[in-house]
Amino acid sequence: MSELNITLLAGGVGGAKAAEGLTLGPYRNGLNIIGNIGDDQSFHGLWVSPDIDTLTYTLANAIDRDQGWGLKGDSKRVLSQLQTLGCDTWMQLGDLDFATHIYRTVQRQAGVRPTEIARAIARGYQVDVPIWLPTDHTVATKLDTESGWLDFQDYFVGERCAPKVRQVCYHNAHLATATPEALAAIDNAQLIVIAPSNPLLSIGAILAIPGIRSAIEQSRAPVIAISPLIAGQAMKGPAAKLMQELDMRPDCLGIAQFYQGLIDLLVIDESDAHLAPAIEKLGIQTLQTAIVMNEPSDREHKMRTIITMASQQLGIHLSARACA
């Protein structure tokens, strides 16, 4: 295994794919993951943490790969009964998935740190790669839309991203404190990788936590980001639509502009090679390669290729085994 210490910032399905690719390759032992908690929300009296759970289930190979979230083979009998009782059930939670949320809620009510709860759930699923929370405080991604202010899940799942967005905010982020585990993961990293996650809805919530962005900026480790957009289209989710509504360029140049001052290199798809000169004018190097990640073996190959090529370009030494 490689001795390269990598810290991955991840949210959504794109973040889980990148995380899985790294854990299946030679970088597992040196990997730390900082996940998005901005889309956490309460449903049926239970605290649900979708992005952290998606990371956990994916790394446990327990994810429902057809839908990209939830547990494979799960049923929805509880949800069906809740619907019979007159509850809103647009947030699709499986029966086995409910166990995770019940455990998390009980532990939170007992005063256990959310970071420790997330680690305990990961251990329960036999995931040994550290998944750290950026903060133990509650920070909520909210969107100002033509339908009014919406919590993230109401926008993303309830409204299926349909309302036009005027503003994105990370409620209470200014009151939050970064976890020491997340800061240590950044400080100890030899390479920091931003997954191909939605920059506004996933990565933005992590960077909004006081101390996280400054720790990355002050880190001695090079920082690379993988574009979630290919030829102006999101690999999954509403990133392009959202960026366009907020007067941002809905392409990998817009991604570079969002991360300008934070990253050293942006990984873009070969089809976006024509945008490389404009990105490089921002002081950001580009790496052009195929970035679509489908099956787990494909994710491992793509992430190994990205890390190897980026490390060579940035002058990071890799072991011979990591390059093999």
Rank of each mutant, 00 (worst) to 15 (best):
M1H: 06
S2E: 12
S2K: 09
I6P: 00
L9R: 04
G11H: 04
G12W: 01
G14M: 05
A16I: 06
K17L: 12
A18V: 02
G25D: 06
G25K: 04
N29K: 11
N32P: 13
N32T: 11
I33V: 12
I34E: 01
G38T: 05
S42A: 10
F43V: 15
H44I: 07
G45D: 00
L46N: 09
W47H: 15
P50G: 08
P50C: 10
I52V: 13
T54G: 09
T56R: 12
D64R: 05
R65T: 10
L71N: 04
K72M: 15
S75D: 14
K76W: 10
Q81F: 14
Q81S: 13
L82K: 00
G86A: 03
C87Q: 15
C87F: 12
W90E: 08
L93W: 05
G94D: 01
F98V: 14
T100Q: 11
V106F: 02
A110S: 14
A110D: 15
A110L: 15
G111M: 10
R113W: 11
R113G: 04
T115N: 15
I117P: 04
I117Y: 01
R119Y: 11
A120H: 09
I121L: 13
R123S: 13
G124I: 12
Q126H: 14
V129N: 00
V129K: 00
I131C: 08
L133M: 14
T135P: 03
D151T: 10
Q153N: 08
Y155M: 09
F156R: 00
V157E: 06
G158I: 09
E159M: 13
R160H: 14
P163E: 00
Q167C: 11
C169R: 15
A173K: 05
A173I: 11
A178D: 04
A184P: 00
A184H: 13
I186M: 07
D187E: 15
L191Q: 04
S197N: 03
S197P: 05
N198A: 04
L200F: 02
L201Y: 07
I203D: 00
R213Y: 07
S214G: 08
I216S: 00
I224F: 01
L229M: 02
A231T: 12
Q233H: 12
P238C: 11
A239N: 05
A239V: 02
Q244S: 08
Q244R: 15
E245H: 11
M248W: 01
I255N: 01
Q257S: 11
Q257E: 15
Q260I: 09
G261R: 09
D264H: 07
D264C: 05
L266D: 02
I268A: 01
E270L: 10
S271K: 14
D272R: 04
A276N: 04
A278D: 13
T289A: 06
T289I: 10
A290F: 09
M293H: 01
E295I: 14
R299W: 10
M303K: 08
T305G: 13
I307Y: 06
A310R: 04
Q312Y: 10
Q312H: 15
G315K: 05
G315P: 02
I316M: 06
H317R: 13
S319Y: 05
A320R: 15
